[in-house]
């Protein structure tokens, strides 16, 4: 007779089972701990910041980002992030989408076998190397020559650099959603006599639209969170006036404001000019979280559909 006891295995097995289960569970729960710690650390620093400025919210709208003068004009760094992020997406969205459509619908398998790893290589480029490229090539050889800005480090240079970094993310997420469109849709389209161009633009892309929107949103979140290129090529080291939406002016992004606050200055690295990095970090955390959540919704929609 086979009993329940037999099926449960021996005691040693059972003990190992319980122990490993607990270990694996703890590992999974660790990620929750990380999130809580991020919120706690940012929240605590933000509290210190507001105590430091005596809860005087006027400093958050005083003109320009000048931490040492306790002028923390959020508009300056938020507009900086918007301008730089928009330029990045103006570069990355069409290029990334183009690459994705080409790879998913047109590329012969031999071409695909070469191009795809190269794009993945692009995805692996360290941002600091792209920052170097922005400083030493995009600024002098491209932007200076075409636009002749007053200062060769500016938001356009930073945006173009970040755009390069974001192309592969845009491309790979878009390609995933295009490939997720069932082949039967394409075949049906060809079956009624549609041309390839019609099939791609009228059938495949509309079917993949949720995924493409998700790709765009997630790529935007990356562009806004990207730090090094903005710090290196944006034009200001830690402080600067509000320059509006003109991309040819230097500017500060939220991320660049954070790294510069952490670096401090020779004279000052304490109090609100330092603590503000937690506050900006908290804002950035919620902005990227919001974008990623919206992006995930769109991805989920694709999954449901097919």
């Amino acid at each position: 007779m086979l009993t329940i006891e037999d099926l449960q295995g021996n005691r040693k097995q059972r003990r190992a089972e319980i122990v490993t289960r607990r270990i694996f569970q703890a590992a999974a729960l660790f990620s929750i701990l990380v999130s809580l710690l991020i919120l706690f650390v940012l929240g605590q620093g933000t509290w210190d910041f507001f105590v430091g400025i005596d809860w005087n919210f006027d400093v958050l709208t005083d003109t320009g980002w000048f931490p040492r003068r306790e002028r923390f004009d959020l508009r300056t760094i938020i507009v900086g992030s918007i301008v730089v992020g928009s330029i990045a997406m103006l570069v990355a969205a069409p290029l990334g989408l183009g690459v994705a459509i080409y790879l998913a619908e047109y590329a012969p398998s031999k071409v695909r076998a070469v191009v795809k790893p190269v794009i993945e290589l692009l995805a692996g480029l360290p941002s600091v190397v792209v920052g170097f490229f922005a400083l030493k090539f995009i600024a002098p050889e491209v932007v200076d020559r075409i636009f002749d800005p007053t200062q060769s480090r500016n938001m356009l240079v930073a945006g173009l650099g970040i755009g390069i970094l974001v192309i592969p993310i845009m491309a790979s997420l878009s390609e995933d959603s295009i490939s997720a469109v069932p082949g039967s849709l394409r075949e049906a389209s060809y079956g009624v006599g549609a041309k390839k161009v019609t099939t791609v633009t009228k059938i495949v892309l509309p079917a993949a639209i949720s995924g493409l929107v998700a790709a765009f949103i997630i790529a935007t979140s990356r562009a806004i969170g990207e730090t090094m290129v903005a710090t290196m090529a944006g034009g200001y080291d830690g402080s600067g006036p509000y320059n509006g939406f003109n991309p040819l002016e230097p500017g500060l992004t939220m991320t660049a404001a954070m790294t510069n606050a952490a670096g401090g200055t020779d004279a000052v690295k304490a109090g609100p000019p330092f603590d503000v990095l937690f506050f900006v970090g908290l804002l950035l955390f919620f902005i990227t979280l919001g974008l990623n959540t919206i992006g995930a919704r769109f991805v989920a929609r694709v999954r449901q559909k097919y």
């Binding site: 289960r21 694996f24 569970q25 999974a28 729960l29 990620s31 929750i32 990380v34 999130s35 710690l37 991020i38 650390v41 940012l42 620093g45 997630i218 979140s221 990356r222 806004i224 969170g225 990207e226 730090t227 991320t255 954070m258 790294t259 952490a262 990095l277 937690f278 970090g281 950035l284 955390f285 990227t288 979280l289 974008l291 990623n292 959540t293 995930a296």
Partner: peptide, 30 residues
């Protein structure tokens, strides 16, 4: 191991996806 319909599992999964999107500079602050 985890039951996928469990609320905590769902929370962990969403949380991990969100963590993957947190900018590196925030991990730096952490």
């Amino acid at each position: 191991y985890a039951r996928h319909d469990h609320k905590i599992t769902q929370l962990i999964l969403v949380n991990i996806r969100n963590l993957a999107g947190v900018p590196a500079v925030i991990y730096g602050v952490l």
